[in-house]
């Protein structure tokens, strides 16, 4: 049987992997954007990217068997599955006709997200785009985030318009 430990390169043993490299790159890009143009504008750029990726992921899941988008739980399942696929550990804590609430203790970006709240716009836009494409409307509010120094991330995904609620709105 192949010895998996000895088959690792020295670089990998030092923590250099393909995933880690690209995650580092994303983190550095976000940091550079925040530094150069400010947090608000950087979040806007990240949002553009998240929006486009959300559209692509919507199309991807629409073509996969086993991922309907009929009920709020269906939407939640897609979001959780998506995060699992990229090494995040989101949990669907609540699912009603009005909203979904997700929490996690582990960000796909890892430690690189700390101090880079613009990256939260990825989750905001990807979740919002997937849900809005499926149901026509979504509203996303990240009430807690590891990036902002909290112990966990808490994402509220509203499925019905509510003028009193916080968050960014998304439309089909």
């Amino acid at each position: 049987m192949k010895d998996t430990v000895s088959s690792q390169t020295e670089a990998e043993r030092q923590g250099l992997t393909r995933e880690g490299f690209f995650a580092d790159m994303i983190g550095e890009l976000a940091g550079a954007l925040e530094e150069v143009i400010g947090l608000e504008d950087a979040a806007g750029f990240v949002a553009m990217v998240g929006n486009r990726m959300g559209d692509d992921l919507s199309d991807l899941y629409a073509g996969l068997p086993g991922f309907p988008t009929e009920t709020p739980e269906d939407i939640g399942r897609i979001c959780v599955d998506l995060k699992e696929k990229i090494s995040g550990t989101f949990t669907l804590d609540e699912a009603t006709e009005d909203r979904l609430i997700f929490t996690n203790c582990d960000c796909p970006f890892g430690k690189r997200v700390e101090g880079r709240p613009s990256l939260c716009m990825m989750t905001t836009n990807v979740f919002g785009r997937i849900a809005a494409n499926a149901t026509g409307y979504a509203r996303v509010h990240v009430s807690e985030s590891i990036a902002a120094g909290h112990a966990r991330c808490r994402v509220e995904l509203g499925l019905k318009p509510d003028d009193s609620a916080n968050g960014h709105e998304f439309f089909r």
Binding site: E40, D41, A43, G44, F45, A47, M48, N51, M121, T124, N125, G128, R129, A132, H168, E169, F170, F171, R172
Partner: peptide
């Protein structure tokens, strides 16, 4: 198009 699909401020 992208502007009208979201309330997120984008450049």
């Amino acid at each position: 198009g992208p502007v009208l699909r979201s309330s997120v401020t984008i450049p």
